[in-house]
């Protein structure tokens, strides 16, 4: 089906783009690749009055590196990251995550910032970047910017901490030390489909930072300091019963099958990260 009619804006000024989206009472949506929004538009589940294409904004397709961080423009495509165009904040993890998103034809247009702001609970970047301790750089309608840590960015399914007149412009990822380990495992019924369960694990012995994160839980990713600490201290994943007990205590509405899938994904991600092979 054809989307309902909309106006397409392609501003070249970030603050102006932010004011455009803020002025529409939710009827004007920013779009940065449209690979999630596009199907919703075609199904007419969403009927915005206008779209603001942010891919032409200055700096949004840039990849930058500082002494402490890697900064990825919000409109950088998954495929560019998959192909290794991006500096690596931790060896290999971004490429691995990017290459597992949907299909190549989708990755050629879908963007890292678009995926984060769409905030689908089953999306890969939401979970992976939480495990990496990343933050989202947002620019408001007055041109001021602020940084939102990933742990505070996603509020629930399709809800983020962005204000109506804010646009995510970049993602900042702290650089990990060369000995840092990571694991990322997702369980999908079919390659490229929405994941049933996602687990990400990052452990950096040098900075002693360690994070275990669960995705596709129905809302914001679940961070488990208890399971992260267990893996860091023992060098092995917690046993299945312990992971399930932790998930049961999370306060989330998770069925037995979902808990099992998440627990298996976590154990595989940790084992993959900590194996010496």
């Amino acid at each position: 089906m054809k989307p309902a009619p909309f106006e397409l804006h392609r501003p070249s000024d970030t603050a102006l783009a932010a004011r455009m989206t803020g002025g529409g009472d939710g009827t004007i949506k920013p779009v940065a690749g449209g690979q999630s929004l596009g199907p919703m538009l075609n199904l007419r589940l969403t009927r915005p009055a206008g779209l603001v294409d942010i891919t032409a904004l200055p700096g949004l397709t840039d990849l930058r590196e500082t002494a402490t961080h890697v900064e990825i423009g919000a409109a950088v495509t998954h495929a560019r990251i998959e192909d290794g165009a991006c500096p690596e904040p931790i060896a290999g993890m971004l490429r691995h995550v990017a290459g597992g998103i949907a299909y190549r034809a989708v990755r050629n247009r879908g963007t890292i910032g678009g995926s984060l702001c769409h905030a689908d609970p089953a999306a890969d970047w939401i979970t992976a970047l939480t495990a990496l301790g990343a933050s989202v750089v947002a620019t408001g309608g007055t041109g001021t910017t602020r940084e939102i840590p990933m742990t505070e960015f996603m509020l629930g399914a399709y809800r983020t901490a962005l204000r109506p007149d804010e646009i995510a412009t970049a993602i900042r990822i702290p650089r990990h030390s060369p000995g840092a380990r990571w694991g990322y495992h997702k369980i999908c019924r079919k390659v490229g489909e929405f994941a049933d369960a996602i687990a990400a694990f990052v452990a950096d012995p040098q900075t002693r930072v360690c994070r275990a994160v669960f995705g596709s839980t129905g809302g914001a990713p679940l961070v488990s300091p208890v399971l992260a600490a267990h893996a860091a201290r023992t060098g092995t994943p917690a046993d299945l019963a312990m992971v399930k007990a932790e998930l049961g205590r999370s306060g989330l509405s998770l069925g037995a099958v979902k808990i099992h899938q998440l627990a298996v994904a976590h154990r595989r991600a940790v084992a993959e990260a900590l194996s010496d092979g």
Partner: peptide, 29 residues
């Protein structure tokens, strides 16, 4: 091969944002 992983005592984690407790436990959908 990569250098063996040396277990470590993690630094205190980032404070987790307060999460609303579920009204009831278990699946409700």
């Amino acid at each position: 091969g990569r250098p063996a992983f040396t277990p470590f005592e993690p630094v205190a984690p980032d404070p987790a944002p307060a999460r609303a407790a579920a009204a009831t436990s278990g699946p409700r959908v």
